[in-house]
Design a protein around this nucleic acid. Structure first.
Lengths: 258, 258
DNA sequence: GGAATAGTGTCTTTTAGACAATATAGA
DNA sequence: TCTATATTGTCTAAAAGACACTATTCC
């Protein structure tokens, strides 16, 4: 096979190569406040950031120290950036099997003062309870959840402000145009729980109106009622539970109503 | 500033770094056949591929030689992958100012036999007439347009089959859910031209029916008629021309009808 | 009974989709 | 006149949106 021959002739050092390849993760969670028994929750979309410590693991001064940053780290040779994100998220929060999705690459020359470093950016959806047992890793001194409004007011490391802006836009779109919402919700959920979730990213009146949304949910092809399953966690009256059906939805803008 | 001090202590060679960072481009074009005068066009979505030559520029055997592949190449240190894509597209086709969009990263270990090489994948939309003056670059012996069905039957280099599958899915979704369609069309277009374009990726009856679509286009908030502008290129009767209005559309699946 | 959320009945308005009809202009 | 595409008229069915009302359960 001549491919092997070609490979022997190939000089891997011919090109200037990047100084690093990192995986960064925008970790989103819904902070859900149960104001009282038998009430639907109040939800808020939050983003987890870490505060970079002053010194790194070797006791040297850290780059972009004491600024807030996305969790992440260098991708290793034997893994993909997505796998690295999963690994780092596990190190950071102790949780496995989280929904993680790539949404962008950041490779603008000069974005990282350490050199030519390419960041592969993901967002992750972590249920709130998993973040209670947070633990800081080597480079991370503090961990905190920020509301989306607060983030615009804090100083962020590298180009993470831009990455976060893009992540917010991406998850907003995905929540409304795909079925990722299911990763924020328990397997079985009520219409008011899904509604509260969607209202964290939209004020569409068709979603905001209780009656409209209660009717609408019954006609959505990707959501089905769980027959015989009701709950009282959002109201005194036992409420129908629903679940997502796995499917891709493409709703053309050309056939929608406005 | 202590960041500078940290930078002096930082050893860029501490980590195993990638062996290369490439930018690959799925170049889509619409082949538009005017069957006769005064008729709407027949359109087909095609993808441009290059056949990798047997020998590279230095006369050595080429990797994955004589297989079809996406155009692309190594990203240089002073540019982003998007810029590299624009540069390579210009080298390949001679056209500037093309619509190029990132849609994925391919970094699975072992995807490239030459080493740890990360591919940043884009799709580009090139009007057909620009591809008439194609020119092969160093590594590319032949250039050809393939219909989406044909592609599944040819042998492709590296993991380009996967990349192409993803590109097709992405552009299909974008055509139906964003206003990228405008990059395939002249600035002013008739309803039947837009319709022909959309029918290359969907068979939605609301788009396929002439009368429905002719009515629908007038109510779309992102398309407006160009007043006083008509053309006879698609019919004997002078036909209203339309243009896209710049805007983002997010149509929630939760408020659509099914 | 009061309060709060879930869910239905019903009416109006809007839209989609089907079908037919009309308009235009070159051949 | 014929033909093909564009465009409008009109009807029907479906859906959206608004509003009022009922249902359930705990207090």
């Amino acid at each position: 096979m001549s491919n092997e021959e070609a490979l022997r002739q190939y000089d891997i050092k011919k090109f200037r190569t990047p100084d690093g390849y990192t995986s960064d993760i925008a970790v989103f969670t819904i902070v859900s406040k149960q104001l009282a028994e038998y009430k639907p929750p109040l939800m808020q979309l939050k983003l987890m950031l870490i505060k970079r410590s002053k010194l790194n693991a070797e006791g040297q001064l850290n780059i972009e120290a004491e600024k807030w940053a996305l969790p992440g780290g260098f991708v290793q040779e034997n893994e993909s950036a997505l796998e690295a994100a999963g690994r780092e998220l596990e190190e950071e929060t102790g949780v496995k099997g989280i929904h993680i999705k790539h949404f962008g690459v950041y490779d603008q020359p000069g974005r990282d003062p350490r050199g030519w470093i390419i960041s592969n950016a993901h967002y992750a959806i972590v249920p709130e309870q998993y973040l209670s047992t947070r633990q800081a890793n080597d480079d991370a001194a503090e961990v905190e959840l920020f509301s989306l409004e607060d983030i615009s007011r804090i100083e962020l490391a590298f180009d993470h402000k831009q990455i976060i802006q893009d992540a917010i836009k991406q998850i907003t779109g995905d929540l409304l145009q795909t079925t990722v919402a299911k990763n924020f919700l328990p397997k079985y959920f009520t219409y008011s729980e899904l509604q509260a979730l969607l209202l964290t990213v939209t004020d569409d009146p068709a979603i905001a109106s209780d009656q409209s949304f209660a009717r609408k949910i019954k006609s959505l092809p990707f959501i089905k009622p769980v027959i015989g399953q009701k709950t009282q966690r959002t109201s005194k009256i036992p409420t129908q539970l629903y679940e997502f059906i796995e499917m891709d939805i493409v709703k053309p803008i050309y056939t929608a109503r406005y």
